[in-house]
Computed example of a mutant assay.
Amino acid sequence: MLAFAIRRLGQSFFVLVVMSFIVFLGVFAVGNPIELLVNPQADEAERLRATVALGLDKPILEQYAVFLKGAVTGDLGRSFVFNVPAIQLILQKLPATIELALAAMLIAVGLGIPLGLLAGLRPHSFVGRSIMALSIVGFSLPTFWVGLVLIMLFSVHLGWLPSNGRGETVMLLGVPVSFLTWDGLQHLAMPALNLALFKLSLLIRLTRAGAREAVLQDYVKFARAKGLGPRRVIGVHVLKNILVPIVTVIGLELGSVIAFAIVTESIFAWPGSGKLLIDSINLLDRPVIVAYLMVIVTLFIAINFFVDVLYSMLDPRVRLGSASTAH
């Protein structure tokens, strides 16, 4: 187990270094920040001073070397616009994004697995067909359109929920959270539901497929033949054996929810890191863009690493397969 974890850590570090160069190269190619940061009426000498001050006069490889040297110590550069460490801006906004992503995944997992099991165990019933039809709708509807419909229905027409902002927050372990207050929960409900819709549909279909396959296996038939009750058969023999792919997908989808919450945050004016990224792109604030992407890549790698470890705990054949491949 330890060797498996060390091997995965080494692979993760290599991926992080490669992705850092790709991200830096991609951001370098997007426009010239001086065009937005310096007054259009400024002369060439002033523009040159600004270019030198921001370190934009150096070749890209030299800029990357400076970035990499700072990144080792946790310094991802200073914001061109706010003149503060870029990582500081990201970490100020990231808790709101993580809270939204976790709330969305909680909805997706809490509803997706039971509904998927129900649809898989009763595939030809009216309930099973209805669940699958709703999952197709969830796949098909664009996130931005669903968000606007939710606002029109629950905020404008019914007046039940606020349409924007994060609401009242309280400190939990030094981090502001909104789910511990009623006002915060009201503000969290619609954006979390909007963000969860696609993941909910995905988990329904994945769980249904796994359940339909599992009920045909010999171990399930044997458990029923022994006289075990339906709850024990489903909870122990069916659900336990389909959890391995589901856990993998949940881990990877959590990373994607954090990374791609930008649309939902923009629609509901949720003050997260996604909205900060949009503003930074509009202002070509390169350090903030790079810092955001590096934080997201690091989160993806960390989540993927923990999913791999958890996967190997659920299914020891993963460790054995990796070990034999390495030899």
Rank of each mutant, 00 (worst) to 15 (best):
K69W: 10
G321D: 05
K58N: 07
I113K: 01
S256C: 00
R224V: 02
D308Y: 11
F198V: 13
V288E: 06
S163L: 05
I250C: 00
V244H: 04
W270E: 02
V297W: 01
V30W: 01
R317P: 03
G255S: 09
L299D: 05
G147D: 06
T264Y: 04
A323E: 14
A53T: 02
A323Q: 14
A65E: 03
G74A: 10
V244K: 02
S280F: 04
Y219R: 10
V23N: 06
A101E: 05
N83F: 06
I6V: 15
A225G: 08
T248N: 13
A302P: 00
L276N: 05
D57V: 03
D308C: 10
R205C: 05
T51Y: 02
P191Q: 08
L153K: 07
G165N: 05
A119S: 15
A29C: 02
L228R: 11
L216H: 12
K275V: 12
F28N: 15
L141Q: 09
N282V: 01
M19W: 01
F198A: 09
G159C: 09
F126I: 14
G184W: 05
L172R: 09
L188I: 09
V66T: 11
V297A: 15
T169A: 15
P176F: 05
A42M: 08
S322T: 10
S155K: 03
M19Y: 02
R208K: 14
L111R: 01
T325K: 13
L200V: 07
L37C: 08
A53I: 06
V233K: 10
L161K: 07
L102F: 12
W145A: 14
L310D: 00
A259L: 01
W145H: 08
E44H: 03
W145L: 13
F24W: 04
V149T: 12
L118A: 07
K226S: 02
G272Y: 02
I204Y: 01
I234Q: 05
V288K: 10
Q41H: 09
R231I: 13
L202V: 15
K226W: 03
L299R: 04
H237I: 02
L188H: 08
A101F: 01
Q186G: 14
V177M: 13
I136R: 11
G77P: 11
Q11F: 12
Y64V: 10
A65F: 08
G110K: 04
P316I: 11
A209K: 05
R212C: 03
S280H: 08
F13H: 01
K240C: 00
R166G: 09
Q217M: 13
I6P: 00
S324I: 13
R7H: 14
A108N: 05
F14P: 00
H187E: 08
M1Y: 11
I258D: 06
L25V: 11
L76K: 10
A323S: 12
K199Q: 14
L203D: 05
L172K: 05
G159K: 09
V257R: 02
V215C: 04
G128D: 07
A50W: 10
V249I: 15
R205M: 04
V170F: 01
V238M: 11
R232L: 14
